[in-house]
């Protein structure tokens, strides 16, 4: 597993991809930080990280798109599948390489933390919580990217699919409130069962909650206030395991496929 991890991480820096991803991330982070510093009396790193979540759907497809698709295209996957290494270790090696690159990217924002500390700003458990939530969210999205890369041998398609999926999961809370209001208005107009307004509103809320239940970023929201709990982390971890397991099964299935 370490062989694949090392090669994969090194290959990010052999090609422009690793550098470009880090550059985008550092640029967006720095940009936000500078503007924020100018326009606001207080600086909060959590806000910067919340903003940087919107960079995910550009950066994560960029760093995950080639993981499996390129191997397939270049015929190097034969090497990995005929080596005495179990397939799940191949998947994990690649996943951790992408995750490590993301950690390197995130560490570029530590300069801002240092600046905040120097200038007497607030760095507390909320900041730490933001980082933890941020990394776990990224871990989930990377596993989605890995899965997309295993589905197709075309890097562009892999990138587009993971872009769409990550984009929609990022705006899931917006989708939830839209669906909620749509649900409430539809049920109110078509009120065959003569439900009371309050119960319709309650049902609408339940629908929104249901959608939000799926959203890893909503779950880690309390982290930014320094309130930690284990269940959001377990939720993210379960998603990671789920997507990586699906990746593993897809790759395994390809060996058996008869087409």
């Amino acid at each position: 597993m370490s062989a694949i991890y090392k090669r994969e991480l090194a290959s990010y820096f052999r090609s422009p991809i690793g550098w470009v991803a880090i550059a985008i991330f550092a640029l967006m982070g720095g940009f936000f930080f500078a503007i924020y510093m100018q326009n606001s009396s207080s600086v909060n790193i959590s806000d910067e990280l919340n903003f940087l979540r919107y960079v995910f759907f550009v950066v994560i497809p960029l760093i995950t798109m080639r993981l499996f698709s390129e191997e397939k295209k270049n015929g190097t996957e034969v090497l990995l599948y005929t080596a005495p290494v179990p397939l799940y270790k191949v998947v994990l090696g690649k996943y951790f390489a992408a995750l490590s690159l993301l950690l390197i990217m995130v560490s570029s924002t530590l300069i801002h933390v240092v600046l905040v500390v120097i200038m007497g700003g607030l760095v507390d458990t909320g900041t730490l919580g933001s980082y933890i939530g941020f990394v776990f969210l990224a871990a989930v999205f990377i596993s989605i990217g890995v899965l997309c890369s295993a589905v197709t041998e075309n890097q562009i398609i892999a990138a587009v699919i993971s872009f769409v999926v990550i984009f929609f999961s990022t705006i899931l809370s917006m989708i939830a409130s839209t669906v909620q209001s749509a649900f409430v208005s539809i049920v109110t107009t078509l009120n065959f069962l003569k439900l009371s307004t309050s119960s319709i509103n309650k049902a609408g809320e339940a629908v929104a909650n249901g959608i939000n239940w799926l959203d890893p970023s909503v779950r880690t929201d309390t982290f930014t206030q320094g309130i930690f709990s284990i269940s959001p982390l377990l939720f993210c971890l379960s998603l990671v395991i789920l997507f990586l397991f699906l990746t593993y099964r897809i790759l395994e299935k390809r060996r058996w496929s008869q087409s």
């Binding site: 090392k6 090669r7 290959s11 052999r14 090609s15 015929g75 190097t76 996957e77 034969v78 090497l79």
Partner: peptide
């Protein structure tokens, strides 16, 4: 089709194979 990583040098590549095997 030889399974080669074109972005590696020969030594780097063979080291990786040693790791892998």
């Amino acid at each position: 089709q030889p399974p080669l990583y074109l972005d590696m040098t020969v030594v780097e590549y063979l080291k990786f194979i040693c790791d892998l095997k």
